[in-house]
Design a binder for these strands. Structure first.
Lengths: 213, 213, 213, 213
DNA sequence: TATGAATGAGGCTTCATTCAT
DNA sequence: GATGAATGAAGCCTCATTCAT
């Protein structure tokens, strides 16, 4: 029926419009938080950036926090994919180093990620938790597989979870220390950071006790 | 005895009273930030907790931020001392593990430290930077000494700096993940976290590429 | 009729309501400053008088100062029009005296003007400057025309500017001295003030040196 | 008696000290108000400038306002004396012009006077009133004497009072307009201001009505 | 669904004045 | 009399959220 068809079209348009508006708000929030941080990401600023009225915001999100909490998980998944795409099929150690490097590549690719990641802990705890779970789960799985293939030995699943948090923490702090350029931009980490990571991952930091030559 | 306590208070002279008031504000801030976080640590809340008028605050700190920025460095030095006291004279690997454990012991000793440390990054950036410098400097020195004694090999000073940030990051994330009890209190990290750290530190995570023998 | 009034209000569209609110704030500010002076014209007081929330204020003015700075220029233009309307087409001297009288008439018509004018100098310097420029420019033009018609002789443009400031200063001080009633209200200046002004304007105060008959 | 003598000396010293402290506060207030204006002249700032404690202030003045109200009358009397000393014994018109010039000379001599005079109206109304009375009384007396000597004709005492306010107002506004240098310093008024004043005083501004050649 | 003005709680800070030493 | 820490009222402004159109 034309009526239903047109209705459908209208409805679709409506739905599409709706999605489009929400998307605009989303992208605006990403930009704003990336540039000014969560604390400065007022609803006014975000909607202005999105080119919609403040009230419109609440047609798509129940409150400000809801949006903020969605930010990191979404970009985080992009990051996971990005890193996966950049990881080859070589030796497990090599792969881990590739992942490490890809993390910092991603930060340069999506500079907003840096602030969104590091601030989410306090300003979007729910989103942060979700992101952490996402990443940790995927990361643990990778380590498990490496263990299966014999590249990693003598680590339990529980220990993997701890290790994964250490590695994520290491990245977070390193990005804080090395990724911010003087002008507020984002730069690549120095090469010695990567070699240090490689050494830590492949041999550890300090000789074990009682180790003989 | 209350009598002696009040007598003690009465005996304070101007300078001492002044210092005492400042100290009260300081301790109140530590409690408040520890409990509610920096964002909720309003001057009103802090002064109420300290039992002084709001205006009194500004006789001791030029503004709210100044106090917040002093919080972490001050407790951070306590932490450094605490850890130093808990570190024995044994093998370098053992010492590192002692330091790791002592970090989490300190968190339990001073539960406020957890939030103060983790939130300072954004709410007290100056204080955070100072703390990081304090800790990193001390930590690098420790590693350098271990290198001199032969317990660590093949790491440059630059790499040490990177490593130190990794280790601090690891601790930070682990504390976030494992130190918070369900009731909001602070608990010790599970033992597998410590064994994982020990393994990472002493042997690395993954077999190096092309390692023969 | 109340019905029609409320109907009228109801009929307002968004833009009109917006303007109406701003206008309400404006009028409230005029009343408050007129009654209590700028120093006591807090945003709280003004919005209360206007019957809107304090936050509403900041939807219409970027800050308190902006409003205060708009007060005098706005009323000042009313004054200029008022005086112009009260100035006839007679002799230049007569016109000047009419302007002088009309100034004090305006003060009685809009009693708030008295404080707004006299205090703006310090509390709304930008607005005061604007007002002064408005008035001085118009006043100088009037004097120039009188010079063209031969009613004023031997004054340069620069001297006109100085004269205009003298005349404005004279009015200001006279209003301060004579316009305040005992009850805080505003009254007309005594007639001898007007005759004194007339004499000063038409013959000066003191015989010139060496003037012969 | 030695006792009484020494007591007297001690007392004198005390009195002298007392006066000396008060004087220091007074001078500090003059400087502070002259430089920053009444609004910024907090008790803290004044006492700091004076080199005494805040509490000391209240041993000499019942409150801030009392001091502020004493400022202008005191300097005002200096001004009256200064102008009197600069006024010759020539023709009345010449004397009036000398007074006018001396007023601006005094402003340059005591730059603080400019702000203290112009702001007192609102921040030290009592002191302002007192100053105005002082000056007006003296000024009227001068005009009366000129009238007795025939240099001024046809002005009543009441009209003198009005005239005096006009002249003071003229000076006030002119100082506001012409005495402030770009750098915040104080400069002499342009010569055309003086000639304009002279013309106004000696011939008026505009030809009287119906005056025939 | 989009709009954007209105709301009002709450935060930081200033400052005249008091008062115990 | 001098000191200066303590007081607490009051002010300006921000911002998430609501709601009538």
């Amino acid at each position: 029926m034309t009526t239903s068809a047109s209705a459908k079209v209208t409805k679709l348009n409506r739905v599409e419009r709706n999605a489009w508006t929400k998307q605009k708000i989303f992208e605006a929030a990403t930009k704003v938080v990336g540039k000014y941080g969560y604390a400065e990401a007022s609803v006014a600023r975000i909607t202005e950036q999105a080119g919609v009225a403040q009230g419109t915001f609440y047609n798509h999100f129940v409150n400000r926090q809801e949006l903020l909490d969605q930010l990191l998980p979404k970009i985080g998944m992009d990051m996971v994919r990005f890193i996966r795409d950049r990881t080859g099929t070589g030796h497990a150690a090599r792969q881990e180093i590739e992942r490490f490097a890809a993390f910092f590549d991603f930060i340069r690719e999506v500079p907003e990620f840096l602030r969104i990641l590091n601030e989410a802990e306090f300003f979007a705890p729910r989103g942060y938790q979700k992101h952490l779970d996402n990443v940790a789960t995927a990361y643990v799985r990778i380590l498990q597989r490496a263990r299966e293939s014999g590249s990693i030995v003598d680590y339990s699943d529980e220990e993997f979870e701890a290790i994964v948090h250490m590695l994520m923490g290491a990245r977070g702090y390193l990005s804080l220390r090395y990724s911010y350029a003087a002008d507020g931009g984002v730069i690549d980490v120095p090469v010695h950071v990567k070699t240090a990571y490689e050494k830590l991952i492949t041999r550890g930091l300090v000789k074990p006790e009682g180790r003989r030559k």
